[in-house]
Amino acid sequence: MERGPMKVAGFGFKQDVTLASLREALVAAGGLAGLAAVATISDKADAEALKQLAREYGVPIKAVPADILAGIDTSTQSRRIIEKFGTGSVAEAAALAAAGPRARLIATRAVSRDRTATAAIAEGDGE
């Protein structure tokens, strides 16, 4: 059976992020139409706000190991994020990594108004 491209929203966020901020960043990045999963760096994948968002939209959370994120080329480049994670944008890198080997960004990083959450959307073939 032929499956269409899979859309994954990648997130980067601060520890104290709220569900509202994650949702706002996602909407700013293009929303949830056709979303198959949400993704972030492994050590943040069990954040309560992200779990609430995934439950709300009925999608799984894909945890991406930090060593996979490091070195993924992203459209957005943040010096602070490059120094900390080895990639320009955690949200963009997580979306690309989780969407599969030939994934492409369809929405670059969007930031919530309170600056605690970023979201980006990638499309790919999945695993």
Rank of each mutant, 00 (worst) to 15 (best):
G86W: 14
T74Q: 02
T18A: 08
K44S: 12
S89E: 12
A47I: 07
P60N: 15
I82T: 10
G126V: 09
P60D: 13
G34C: 09
V59E: 12
P65L: 08
A94M: 15
G126K: 13
L32N: 08
R104A: 03
R55Y: 04
I61E: 14
G34N: 06
A120F: 00
V17T: 10
V64D: 04
A110R: 03
A107F: 07
K14C: 03
A70P: 01
A93D: 11
I121K: 00
F13Y: 03
P65G: 09
D73V: 04
G124L: 01
I61V: 15
G88A: 04
R55H: 10
D67M: 09
S42P: 00
T40S: 15
A47P: 03
D114H: 08
R104T: 13
A117T: 01
R115A: 00
T116K: 01
G88H: 06
P5V: 11
V64R: 06
R79P: 10
G86N: 04
A45R: 02
M6D: 02
T74N: 04
A47V: 09
D67K: 08
E24V: 05
V90K: 01
A39N: 14
K62F: 10
E56T: 12
I61C: 15
L50C: 09
G86F: 06
K84L: 12
T116I: 02
M6I: 14
K44P: 07
A28I: 03
A97M: 11
M1W: 03
S21T: 08
V27A: 14
V90W: 03
A97V: 11
A120K: 01
A122L: 07
A97Y: 14
G58F: 01
S42N: 08
R80I: 11
A97Q: 14
L26V: 09
A37W: 07
T40D: 01
S21D: 11
S112L: 03
A9P: 09
R113L: 12
I82M: 15
G34W: 08
I82E: 09
R23S: 10
A119V: 00
A63V: 02
S75V: 15
L50H: 06
A25R: 01
P5F: 03
E123G: 00
F13V: 02
D114M: 06
G88V: 08
A93H: 13
G88K: 07
A49R: 05
S89P: 05
V8S: 05
A91K: 05
R104W: 01
I81Q: 02
